[in-house]
Computed example of a mutant assay.
Amino acid sequence: MDARDVLIDGIERSCEVCHGLLDGLTADQVNWRPGGDHNSIGWLVWHIAREQDVQIAALAGSEQAWTAKGWVDRFALDLPAGSMGYGHTAEEAGRVVVHDPCLLSGYLDDAVDATIRYLKSLDEGSLQDVVDQRWDPPVTRGVRLVSVVDDASQHAGQAAYVRGLLP
Rank of each mutant, 00 (worst) to 15 (best):
19 H>S: 11
89 T>P: 07
61 G>M: 12
56 I>T: 13
31 N>D: 11
122 L>R: 09
90 A>V: 10
42 G>K: 01
48 I>D: 08
104 L>H: 13
41 I>C: 01
29 Q>V: 09
115 T>M: 15
30 V>R: 01
91 E>R: 08
121 S>C: 14
71 W>V: 14
112 V>A: 04
78 D>A: 10
115 T>P: 04
80 P>V: 10
102 C>K: 09
47 H>S: 02
73 D>M: 12
25 L>A: 00
27 A>T: 07
22 L>N: 01
95 R>F: 11
82 G>L: 04
111 A>F: 02
96 V>G: 15
88 H>A: 12
66 W>M: 15
53 D>Y: 00
73 D>H: 02
32 W>F: 12
29 Q>A: 05
21 L>T: 10
24 G>I: 03
73 D>A: 06
101 P>S: 11
76 A>E: 01
28 D>L: 14
17 V>Q: 05
86 Y>T: 15
104 L>K: 10
71 W>A: 00
97 V>P: 00
53 D>N: 12
20 G>T: 10
114 A>R: 13
25 L>W: 00
57 A>Y: 06
30 V>M: 08
66 W>G: 12
58 A>C: 06
94 G>K: 05
24 G>K: 08
39 N>I: 06
53 D>E: 12
81 A>S: 15
25 L>F: 00
55 Q>L: 15
66 W>A: 11
45 V>S: 11
104 L>V: 08
46 W>D: 11
29 Q>H: 03
79 L>W: 11
120 K>W: 01
112 V>W: 05
91 E>W: 02
67 T>W: 07
103 L>Q: 01
75 F>N: 05
91 E>C: 11
100 D>E: 06
41 I>K: 06
82 G>T: 02
74 R>L: 14
102 C>Y: 11
52 Q>Y: 07
109 D>W: 01
43 W>R: 14
82 G>Q: 08
24 G>V: 08
112 V>Q: 03
61 G>Q: 15
75 F>P: 11
20 G>I: 02
65 A>G: 09
102 C>W: 15
62 S>R: 15
53 D>Q: 11
99 H>K: 15
46 W>N: 01
45 V>K: 07
24 G>P: 04
108 L>R: 14
52 Q>W: 05
104 L>Q: 08
37 D>G: 09
63 E>I: 02
51 E>F: 14
52 Q>N: 12
115 T>I: 14
121 S>V: 04
33 R>S: 12
17 V>S: 14
92 E>N: 06
103 L>D: 02
28 D>W: 11
38 H>S: 10
82 G>R: 14
110 D>P: 03
109 D>R: 09
78 D>G: 15
40 S>E: 03
60 A>I: 10
92 E>M: 04
52 Q>D: 04
94 G>Q: 01
94 G>I: 00
81 A>C: 05
109 D>T: 14
67 T>C: 03
57 A>I: 01
102 C>S: 14
64 Q>G: 00
85 G>D: 09
50 R>P: 15
111 A>D: 12
80 P>F: 04
54 V>Y: 02
45 V>D: 03
60 A>P: 15
90 A>M: 03
96 V>W: 10
110 D>N: 07
35 G>Q: 10
70 G>S: 10
34 P>E: 13
111 A>V: 01
39 N>K: 06
46 W>C: 08
17 V>L: 10
27 A>H: 10
26 T>I: 03
64 Q>A: 02
97 V>F: 05
68 A>N: 13
122 L>S: 07
